[in-house]
Amino acid sequence: MDQPVSPQGPPNMDIFLKGLWKENPTFVQLLGMCPVLAVTNSVINALAMGLATMFVLIMSNLLVSLLRKVIPKQVRIATYILIIATFVTVTDYAIQAISIEVHKSLGAFIALIVVNCIILGRAEAFASKNSPWKSILDALGMGLGFTFAVLCLGVVRELLGNGSLLGIPVFGESFEPWIIMILPGGAFFVLGGWLLLFNWLKIRKSAGVQHG
């Protein structure tokens, strides 16, 4: 199974694609569960959170990669946190400048991007060992993978918990919303459901490979 690794490492396309599916930060690595469970109660919140996280991920990966040879390894974690916190603050101001309404609906969760372990994880596991270009690709892939995952949860939770999509009612007046779905408990149920589906697909695929 093991492929010989070329001296340049895996090709760029693979770096980008692995975050989307094979190493999806949420569904495969199960990292950064806090925002996944907390802000996915509506599609718009999930989307804004996904994009904000992706921006921070790209910028921090880029800076960590550029500085990877100057940062002594004893203080690297502190430095990464500093870099990440900087970009989160920048994002916070940027969102306020773009739209007060979106900023209002995300509330405290923007500041909490700092402690999202996907970002620290990518800085430590990838950006500190790879060139800036590859780090950006990695961040883009992981960011899109994360956004995809939070949207998966957001769509189901808003649909069942509020009977709407992007705030537009879809089920009509007679639909009784499942309140549990927009509560924290519903987030666990939906996440469990998606994990079940993705793992089942994976098992089926590997079984198919064996038979074929």
Binding site: L63, L67, V70, I71, P72, V75, A78, T79, L82, I83, A85, T86, F87, T89, V90, Y93, A94, Q96, A97, S99, I100
Partner: peptide, 29 residues
């Protein structure tokens, strides 16, 4: 030195963003 340098970069970035967005945010509010 490394921490200080990264801290300075961070400070410059934040101050720049704050200065740039402040009038827009005030106007928005």
């Amino acid at each position: 030195m490394a921490m200080g340098a990264v801290g300075s970069i961070a400070a410059v970035l934040i101050v720049f963003t704050f200065q740039f967005t402040l009038p827009i945010i005030e106007a928005n509010k």
